[in-house]
Amino acid sequence: MSVTLLIEQILNGVQLGTMLFLMASGLTLVFGVMGLINLAHGSFYMVGAYATAAVTASTGSFLMGLAAGMTAAALVGALVELLVIRRLYHRPHLDQVLATFALILIFSEGTRWIFGSSPMRLSPPSWLTGFVTLPGDTRYPLYRLMLIGVGIVISIALYFLISKTRLGMRIRAGESDREMIGALGVNISKLYTVVFALGAALAGLAGALVGALQSVQVGMGEPVLILAFVVIVIGGIGSIKGALLGALLVGLVDTLGRVYLPIFFRAFMPPSEASGVGAALAAMLIYILMAVILAFKPKGLFAAHD
């Protein structure tokens, strides 16, 4: 296996990781600030993708679509927070699991009711198609490079938001002591709505960006949701830094495992069998990674708090 291929696969892993980070950061914020387990986070990913596809198709502008996707996800997020989630903060985690599971069903089938069973069309705009040639004659799709860029920008923006702004200060205060922040005169319910909508918007953005590379269809959020949970658990729940590192780790391990495990098994197995065994093991790899990490660090790599 050549070095250029390795470089390209590492880029692929990083790109997968940055998109997982967009999902995971919202999930981990919501858990950190409100103590809420939100299974319906994948639904915002789907809402973002569908809204982007619909608006891109009718306006012809991908950027308008993206803006619409993020806005729609944020609005739906705020609405869900006001109508449902708000009643769950003081309830046990298990009630939150049941309620957000119900929300998944409602969102998935509601989307199918509105948009039909067929997958939607959403492609990258023409100015983002094609590829760039990197040193060592590695060709890399421009769109994926852009995704990595967006991921980096969002990470930096989140860092500034949380460490430098008033909202960020409140979020941090909320993470360390939920009772305290109310005593400080902060309007908690408004803060919660804002944080929830922010998380939803990030998920919507991820869905819109990735939707252009994948199939925009009902249920697209569920596999990503599971991966995002893996990420925040590896990173340590409530920690944005942990989410970032966890996302990159999962992205890299998943991508490299898929490529190199079959090759590894080929050293001592017939090719066809090696591909099968390698692929099977690759599918399990991130779960093995998670189990090993939690066995040694039961609160993830960067536990913020319980």
Binding site: M1, L5, N12
Partner: peptide
């Protein structure tokens, strides 16, 4: 030339596409 096995429900094929090109 080669047989590639992907995962069920896989959504990202960057790794496979790089292998195909190589």
């Amino acid at each position: 030339v080669d047989e590639l096995y992907t995962q069920m429900g896989q959504t990202d094929y960057a790794a496979e596409i790089a292998q195909i090109r190589a």
